[in-house]
Amino acid sequence: MAVLLIAEVNGGALNVDATAKALTAAKALGDVTVLCASEGCADAATAAAALDGVGKVLCADAAEYGHDLAEPVADLIVSLAGDYDHIVAPSTAASKNILPRVAAMLDVMVISEVTAVIDADTFERPIYAGNAIQTVKSADAKKVATIRTSTFDAAGEGGSATIENIAAAGNAGLSEWVEDKVATSDRPELTSAGVVVSGGRGVGSEDDFKLIETLADKLGAAVGASRAAVDSGYAPNDWQVGQTGKVVAPDLYVAVGISGAIQHLAGMKDSKIIVAINKDEEAPIFQVADYGLVADLFDAVPELTSKLG
């Protein structure tokens, strides 16, 4: 079986973690070719070629691929699809936007958020905010799937794939990029961090969210948030963990002032160790916490920060 893996490329750089995790799933399906589509994709292609198990890297370097616009990228993928049985990508915001479009253009279903590969046609995926796991067998000629990265280990390095530059597939100009508002941070990326500290509505304000950030920095952690914290303006949208936000599975997840709604649990309950700090001993978050502390976060978080390290 031939597999086309769409690499996650941001600003010309390969997102190694997301791509290498999806690669692990892709390798279980067949021989993997990686597509890097970006404006200036040479560095990303070189990085992808070094991943273990990549047979070939296709590099499509064009301005219209610079901002992950769905229409031109989907056109490119569809133009290559004839050579592959599977088209897969890490389930990032970019590929969730693009792959269903690709699938419909090929008249096949998309298989979203695959958490296990059973065989070349059969996959597991969570439904109902992770409250049920469905096993589906695709009857389509080609399988188009996004891979939930939090459930796969990253493939290692040591590959030396050939890199082939390919022509762009044109741009119908249906949409136009205007701007990105991306905060840069020295903290680890949320979906690949080993430790995540998340705050919820209980934190109470944007100012007090600094408590969460200080604890995170002490632990070298990424910062996450519940939907309520994001909606209330305490935290930016890209920190949201959950069914409709990011899915994380770090070694340690610390939930502070978060009640533990199923939609939040959907994004973090596969973490190795879960710590919950909440003043309400009945909060559902304690049902998934390995270590629960019933306390006021305004006392507990500063004390925890000072006693670590």
Partner: peptide, 23 residues
Amino acid sequence: PRLQIVGTSEPAERAAGIKVGSI
């Protein structure tokens, strides 16, 4: 449907944790 549902199962349960009394 293009995707045949082979089965639906409960997600793995987490083992029960403990409450700690202090930081």
